[in-house]
Design a protein around this nucleic acid. Structure first.
Lengths: 350, 350
DNA sequence: CTGAAAGCGCTTACAG
DNA sequence: CTGAAAGCGCTTACAG
């Protein structure tokens, strides 16, 4: 114990900017400028400093940089960790940060998935840690909380269509179009009475948009009287109850368009337990096109919303904001349906 | 641009320790002591300071604290983000940190899942950010790299049986017992020729232990001549190839014990595509008891290794190390088999 | 283009 | 028990 009362800092083990400056024979300020790629440094000086940094294996400490400038760290906030779709977003973010000094650190917002007005403990913790910017992934986000947050820190929101003035950027897939594609696909395959299993706190417009797309396309294809939207939370039991109720109806749908793949897998499970065959008795379509869709036991037709592209774009836009952009931008990716066995009466064609 | 050249810091918006001291009528040092729960503060002073902190809504900045002391941030390093088992570990870590000032930040080690000697970019980034300690989740970790890492920063490793002297703690489930339980269960259900689908870079002893458990139990139950271990990486295609090869053998196994649930789901998929019925033609058992095991289309018998408990324990041990413990400790959780339909000839009993 | 000095918000010895 | 001062490793105006 005695010699290790302050083990969090192990002194003397780390090269500082002062030592680099000494080695290169320049001032500390000069090294700092090279570090930040700031203007006003001669090539000769830059080369000397770079050489010393490499030779001494110098790595700047983010804490110290954060005291006056940036920490070069951005916070990534997921609503949960079980949906493999988020892994796609993550890898997109990382791809965008590849050649920069920025590093993403992530956390999961466990507080019932909601960013409420008091703001979540995780978000506060990230601000305490001087994150240069935040990427928050929806849905289920309180609008006013987002605006407040965006006024405190550069912010990009993924999966949230509502705009917050200039407070934050948004990155989305076109949810209305995605829903339309699903209905179009199902009807083309002969399923004329698809129900929609939507998400329960229908606060975010990402949910509304998908529901609108479903309704409009149903009507345009002459299936208006079969419109049927039920909602559930992402909690397993809620999904099971909702699906069971849908399928117990005397007038049951011939297809279910589910909010996410995860909900669709539950739907497959419930339907299977009820003795229904997929897709003969019931077609099922998911959203996100996660890796599990490919499994033969799922063979789930799904909508690909390019999670990687969403993440890539979100990170790029966030860095622009950190660099000074104050007006909002909004990016939309077109969705694409990926057909598999769960919604095709004929084969399990890819 | 002009007025926002330094948007990463929005000055004046945040209460500092100086303002708290002023409000409470005490010194900055006194506030710092209250903040850190350090000894040598009178109750009266502590109460006053606490009141001012609450009134001003004071939150200390981690960067500043990290300059001399701790950042109260620990890094959590996952090998990938697609396995829902890691969500269990994460929630255990969070549970342990609940009432502390610590916050976990996580990252995914994308560099081929290996912590090599040059150490991964993610780990270096976390050290640059002054993480007080690291929890690294295996397998596929180079031993020497871990020892080096443990000498630089408090370290706990999850899913890695090899001990590194006093350089780091380990937290594991009893993998040998877990494998034994699987074999015992399968044989009891009438499957006498189970193969094992193990992980390919069999460097870590977590892998060896599970293989040893499989071998020993097979021999002890008189199935020694049916011992058959194949290995694959976690990459989907590798798993498919390995399973297909196993099942194409004239003398094919009547059961497959898979390294993880994810690999087991792939095995179910391949077997299904080959026209085999589960469990009639082939039993399948996974490891981790992830939520997807419950789905009717998987109904996967699996080994529960209490991810939440592993995470809880890892976080507790890490904080002990941060607080000064220098000797290694090792924690082992007993595994437990959860029977479902994929390995029971009779029913899909839970 | 280059550097000396001040300062970011805390913690840490060290006096009192 | 309490506080004044130094210092952590950077960045930021400001001179030169």
């Amino acid at each position: 114990m005695s010699e290790k009362d302050t083990p969090a800092t192990r002194p003397g083990e780390r090269i500082t900017i002062r030592e680099v400056a000494q080695d290169a024979g320049v001032s500390v300020a000069a090294v700092s400028k090279v570090l930040r790629d700031a203007y006003g440094v001669s090539d000769a000086l830059r080369t000397k400093v770079r050489a010393s940094m490499a030779k001494l294996n110098y790595r700047p400490r983010a804490s110290a940089r954060g005291m006056r400038g940036r920490t070069y760290t951005i916070g990534l906030i997921f609503p949960d960790l079980r949906n493999p779709f988020f892994a796609d977003i993550y890898s997109g973010v990382n791809a965008a940060l590849e050649r920069t000094q920025y590093q993403a650190m992530q956390g999961i917002n466990t507080t019932s998935g909601a960013v409420n007005t008091t703001s979540s403990a995780l978000i506060e913790a990230m601000i305490d840690r001087q994150m240069d910017g935040l990427i928050v992934i929806g849905p289920n986000i309180d609008m006013q909380a987002l605006i407040n947050l965006g006024e405190r820190v550069p912010l990009v929101v993924v999966g949230h269509h509502d705009r917050g003035g200039d407070a934050f950027d948004t990155v989305n897939n076109d949810d209305q179009l995605g829903a339309r594609l699903v209905v179009r696909h199902l009807v083309a395959k002969g399923f004329r009475r698809p129900a929609m299993l939507s998400l329960t706190p229908a606060t975010s417009s990402i949910i509304q948009q998908r529901e609108v797309g479903y309704r409009l396309e149903m009507m345009e294809l002459g299936c208006g009287e079969a419109i049927n939207i039920v909602r559930a939370s992402q909690v397993v039991r809620d999904v099971q109850v909702a699906v069971r109720r849908l399928l117990s109806d005397a007038n049951r749908p011939d297809a279910i368009f589910c909010w996410t793949d995860l909900m669709a897998f539950e739907a497959i499970s419930v339907a299977t337990e009820m003795g229904l065959s997929i897709p003969e008795d019931l077609a099922i379509v998911g959203y996100d096109n996660t890796i599990f869709c490919d499994l033969a036991q799922n063979s789930l037709t799904s909508v690909d919303q390019s999670g990687e592209l969403l993440g890539l774009q979100a990170a790029r836009m966030l860095i622009e904001r950190i660099d000074g952009r104050t007006s909002a931008e909004h990016f939309i990716v077109p969705p694409r349906i990926v057909a598999r066995g769960s919604a095709s009466a004929t084969s399990e064609a890819e």
